[in-house]
């Protein structure tokens, strides 16, 4: 028989989630009989147990790794880590040898900007359609032909040009242009070059969003990641 919910259950619930009430405790039994608290207790305990399992796995693996620091596998691992980090830490060759190109690039950009203003501004370039925002390109590979449209239900639909050899795509959305913070939205294993962001997720996004797309080939092997930023339409 289920018991009625009383205010007293709430501090007990906190103690139960914290693991301070064991399975035989009367207070825990009362929570398990309460129609309001029982589903909450079951979910919270499942969550706590899942976190405990994940934590235990992490501690066990790290203890094993710590004990293997002098092994042959560790020496091979160290060699791989050294080579990979050295490659990642090195500035790209173009940055070292072509610094003299920087002033020329700035001058060319300014000239192009001046040309664009004189040919387009006065001619009254039509504004883009209101539901589609035009992306600005990021520093990684360029995500081409990105379009962002908002559906009637507030969801966002992102679509981009298919990548050669790509069999699937992983998508991450970020608040920062460098795409280095925690992703705000993740959708993996998309078979087509498009991604729907549900309206409840859209509400968590800032006005300006950076999208990072990781294409995979059929093997599956990682292809070059692509990035672009857009203003929410």
């Amino acid at each position: 028989m289920t018991r009625a919910h009383v205010e007293q259950h709430e501090p007990w619930l906190v103690e139960a989630i914290d693991g301070r009430l064991d399975a035989r405790d009367e207070r825990r039994a009362a929570l398990a009989d309460c129609e309001v608290c029982a589903p909450l207790l079951a979910d919270m305990e499942a969550l706590r147990d899942g976190l405990d399992d994940a934590g235990r796995l992490e501690r066990d693996v790290l203890a094993e790794v710590s004990g293997a620091r002098e092994s042959d596998a560790a020496r091979r691992g160290a060699a791989q880590a050294r080579a990979a980090i050295a490659q990642l830490a090195a500035p790209p060759p173009s940055a070292r040898s072509r610094r003299w190109l920087v002033p020329l690039a700035i001058a060319a950009t300014l000239a192009l900007a001046a040309y664009w203003i004189t040919t387009h501004w006065r001619a009254g370039e039509p504004a883009p359609a209101p539901s589609v925002s035009r992306p600005q390109l990021g520093g990684e590979g360029v995500l081409r032909a990105l379009t962002v449209t908002r559906g009637a239900d507030g969801a966002l639909e992102l679509a981009w040009e298919a990548v050669d050899d790509a069999a699937s795509y992983d998508v991450e959305l970020f608040a920062d242009e460098s795409a280095t913070g925690a992703p705000l939205f993740v959708s993996n294993g998309l078979a087509e070059p498009r991604c729907a962001v549900p309206s409840d997720q859209v509400a968590r996004l800032p006005a300006r969003v950076t999208v990072r797309v990781q294409p995979w080939d059929v093997n599956p092997r990682r292809l070059s990641p692509l990035r672009a930023s857009f203003q929410q339409p």
Partner: peptide
């Protein structure tokens, strides 16, 4: 900050990456 000695020390610490993956793979 790009400090050479720190990158070397960091590389040495990152030997844990292949070891962690080997352990997860075995499990």
């Amino acid at each position: 900050a790009g400090e050479r000695a720190a990158i070397d020390e960091f590389s040495l610490r990152m030997q844990c990456v292949p070891l962690i993956l080997a352990s997860l793979n075995a499990r």
